[in-house]
Simulated assay, not measured.
Amino acid sequence: MGKRIGISYWGFCQQFEDCNIANTPDGHRYGRPMMVDEMLKRKHEVIALQERRELTPYPGLLYDDDGYPDLDILFIEWRWPTWKNSGPKSFESDLKRQVDLLDHYHGKIPIIAWDTDLQITVTDEKRWPEMIVADPCFDPVTLTKKRHRLTWWSDFSEFFDSCEGSVMYGYIGNNYSREKQFLKYYASVSQSFRHVGIQTMVYGNWMQHSPERPHPRIVVQGYPNIAFVDRVGFFESMKVLNRFICTTHISKESYSERGNVTVRFFETLACNVPALVPADFYAADILGDDWTVSSTADVFDKVFYLMKLSGEERKNVVDEQRYSFRKYHDFHVASAVDFIESFV
């Protein structure tokens, strides 16, 4: 029998081809519609409880951004205080709505808080002690209670075939807390790549001025051999990713230590792009031992090797990485929905 599932997210739930809004940090546009589709397939009623940001309603998804409908369970993609949603000049409603939902439903129905950015605090856990906390790490954080592991997920469909003739080594991601890894795995190798006809490309918010990060002028001066491009819409970013020879999955230090296999791993597989994994990542061999890197020289050697392959040969590499990835853990969206259902 279907259940009434409330979901709270601050982002977009759209068909991939419709994901054209660029200026948003929403990191879950890839997996969210898959989760909703899987829930609808199981005859659940799914209600989005934050302000709708997608231009048109997602097929089958219901919306209620100011009420408190009867629910069997509430699934929250955790939000935390930022300069946009808290303080005297705040202009986004996600945090206030999340707090209101938690205060209303706590103790009445199961609430799963999925802490994808590892931002839940001791204060949060004490304020809502019956909240079920999960995070995507292989080694979940422990504060006042034991957490559940709920990894990012996929249906493992593929967007594109591998491209031919690429000359770009690239990174799609914003300028947040990855300075050491960015320097080691991208900036330090960028000049050597130019000498052999490979351009290092970076897409994201690097050229946008913000109080949260260095001024774009400093970024350009610091990385003279890298071409920086502004954010593009999600589906356009997947087309860009598909044109890369390869990418390297750099992570925040806490993600690397605990094994937060971020959505970027799933996106590269969907785009049929080979990826490299730093050796200090918790699950460094998740794409296979051959694709672990520990130095700038490793990155150069592997990317240069991949550049010389045909599109079909690079697709074979991705197929091997996909096999290793799926063997390492069950990342299928069906298992994620099984997890949510288990608390109803």
Score class of each variant (00 low, 15 high):
residue 223 Y to A: 07
residue 254 S to R: 12
residue 253 E to W: 00
residue 227 A to C: 04
residue 55 L to P: 10
residue 53 R to H: 07
residue 162 S to T: 00
residue 96 K to R: 13
residue 282 Y to L: 09
residue 14 Q to F: 05
residue 341 E to I: 15
residue 63 Y to T: 08
residue 338 D to C: 11
residue 53 R to T: 03
residue 40 L to W: 04
residue 343 F to S: 08
residue 122 V to F: 07
residue 215 H to R: 00
residue 82 T to Q: 13
residue 255 Y to E: 12
residue 48 A to G: 02
residue 301 D to W: 08
residue 251 S to R: 00
residue 169 Y to Q: 00
residue 126 K to Y: 09
residue 208 Q to D: 02
residue 266 F to V: 15
residue 141 V to I: 14
residue 54 E to K: 07
residue 121 T to L: 15
residue 263 V to G: 11
residue 115 D to K: 09
residue 22 A to I: 03
residue 76 I to Y: 01
residue 343 F to L: 10
residue 26 D to Q: 03
residue 317 V to E: 09
residue 65 D to C: 11
residue 293 V to Q: 06
residue 123 T to S: 11
residue 192 S to N: 14
residue 182 F to L: 09
residue 336 A to K: 13
residue 207 M to F: 04
residue 258 R to G: 13
residue 41 K to C: 11
residue 232 V to Q: 01
residue 199 Q to A: 09
residue 20 N to P: 10
residue 118 L to D: 06
residue 221 Q to I: 03
residue 50 Q to V: 03
residue 110 P to K: 01
residue 271 C to P: 09
residue 241 L to Y: 02
residue 36 V to N: 05
residue 117 D to I: 12
residue 200 T to V: 03
residue 44 H to W: 06
residue 304 F to Q: 14
residue 138 F to T: 09
residue 261 V to Q: 05
residue 192 S to D: 15
residue 302 K to G: 07
residue 242 N to I: 01
residue 204 G to D: 07
residue 44 H to N: 09
residue 33 P to Q: 03
residue 101 L to H: 10
residue 44 H to S: 05
residue 178 R to E: 07
residue 36 V to P: 05
residue 130 E to A: 08
residue 270 A to F: 01
residue 107 G to L: 15
residue 16 F to N: 00
residue 285 D to F: 05
residue 323 Y to R: 15
residue 3 K to E: 00
residue 131 M to I: 11
residue 161 D to A: 13
residue 274 P to H: 07
residue 281 F to Y: 10
residue 49 L to W: 14
residue 302 K to M: 13
residue 304 F to T: 11
residue 254 S to V: 01
residue 75 F to Q: 04
residue 206 W to N: 00
residue 256 S to A: 12
residue 174 N to D: 11
residue 309 L to M: 06
residue 80 W to Q: 10
residue 327 K to G: 14
residue 296 T to F: 14
residue 87 G to H: 14
residue 84 K to H: 05
residue 34 M to E: 06
residue 109 I to E: 11
residue 140 P to S: 14
residue 70 D to H: 14
residue 220 V to S: 01
residue 215 H to M: 00
residue 289 D to C: 06
residue 152 W to D: 02
residue 324 S to V: 15
residue 331 F to C: 04
residue 182 F to H: 07
residue 25 P to E: 12
residue 260 N to Y: 06
residue 238 M to S: 00
residue 240 V to S: 02
residue 127 R to T: 12
residue 65 D to P: 07
residue 327 K to N: 15
residue 200 T to S: 05
residue 47 I to Y: 08
residue 227 A to V: 00
